[in-house]
Simulated scan of single mutants.
Amino acid sequence: MKNLDVKVLDKIVKGTIAAVEKSKTQIFDIYEAARAEMEKVRRDVDRIKQETADIIFKVDELEKKERRSRLRLMEVSRNFRQYTESDIKGAYEDTSNVQLELAMARLQEQNLRRQRDDLELRLKSLKDTVEKAEGLVSQVGAVLGYLGNQMGEVVTQIESLQASQIFGAKIIRAQEEERRRVAREIHDGPAQAMANIVFRAEVCERLIDTDIARSKNELKDLREQVRVALRETRKIIFDLRPMTLDDLGLVPTIRRVLDTLKERSGIFPEVKIMGEEKRLDSHIEIGLFRIIQEALNNVEKHSQASLVWVRIDFRPSVVSAVVEDDGRGFDSAENIGNESFGLMGMRERINLLSGELNIKSESGKGTRIFVTVPLKQ
């Protein structure tokens, strides 16, 4: 009976995976179609806005022209004996033509404003659809990853399924959210910058033969945009895997993270190295770095601190690190069993390193995280 139950469960899970995979494909198709339509509507909005600005300028000019023609007509009408019949007729015709042209321009302005408002409402609706579809794709991907990765656990350890679900789902969800974050940073940062660079390059191509001075200015702006795109790309790469960690080691990388923290949040950092600084095994350096990085992320997001201290102590058989802040803190006793995924991830990393992690915090008295990792002799 037990074998039968496992086979039935296996069949159910596989069927669920197939159904969810199909749904993910359909949602992604909706997302792609909505995104393409959104980009098209965005271009239409930009075009209509420019046309609206042009017609508004034209209406303003025609209104000035119409006022001048009416003044001319009034002058001719009051002093008709001083003007020929041809002058009077010309004044009436000019005024009539200008008024007709002004009426048509105003009608065109109304139509363009209405089109612009309709397109902006449609663009907002499409943005909402794209965001919802993107969120659904991320959630469905998390479910698929969880079901696929946990299949062996489902078959062989049914009794531990609930615990595996809770933590496994959080891991996959965090991975999907991280991928989504990186994709969004690339899309909103370097990708947008590159698209703008291509556009500015096309402008330079058109200007190079007609306006050298303006072309040079455009090239200067283009060079600055390339620098910005390069800087943003390097930041994304650093967040994923700091190059300095492999090249220079743990301490220089932590110093760079602290410098970035100070620039971004205004929190003043202090770092102190004790013992003889040395390179550690790669898995220890990356593990310690991620733990310290997560601790600093928590300080920035939640602590409302003005100061943060990082101390790293190198000893022959052990390396330890302390991250302490002067923020609002929290009640450690009340937080037991209700830790964030960041803290759970820190504990998982320290377990992999066979180390110890202690967190001490009190409301209004800051937080202190102490990490110890043994070194191989």
Rank of each mutant, 00 (worst) to 15 (best):
S160R: 15
R113T: 06
E61I: 03
M243K: 13
V322N: 00
N97R: 15
R256E: 11
R70Y: 12
S23L: 12
A34M: 03
L280Y: 05
N358F: 05
R347L: 03
S164Q: 13
F57R: 14
N351I: 04
L307W: 15
K127P: 00
E21L: 02
L230S: 12
E339F: 06
V137S: 02
Q99H: 11
A321Y: 09
R116T: 06
A195Q: 12
E101L: 07
L219W: 02
I30K: 13
N111S: 15
E334W: 00
V130A: 07
D247Q: 13
K132W: 09
D87P: 01
Q115F: 03
D118A: 15
E101P: 01
R106M: 06
I312M: 10
E51G: 01
K360G: 11
R113M: 11
R113N: 09
G141R: 04
W309M: 07
R114E: 15
D259F: 09
P242H: 07
E159D: 14
I186N: 02
V45E: 08
V76Y: 11
I267A: 04
R256D: 08
Q162D: 08
L73Y: 06
F289M: 02
A18H: 01
I292T: 04
I312F: 09
A193T: 05
K64V: 10
V41H: 03
A305K: 04
M344D: 07
E270P: 00
R173W: 14
D259A: 14
Y92L: 10
S340C: 05
M274E: 15
V155D: 00
I208E: 12
A305R: 05
E61T: 11
I172M: 10
M151Y: 03
V76H: 10
V155W: 01
V76D: 04
R349H: 07
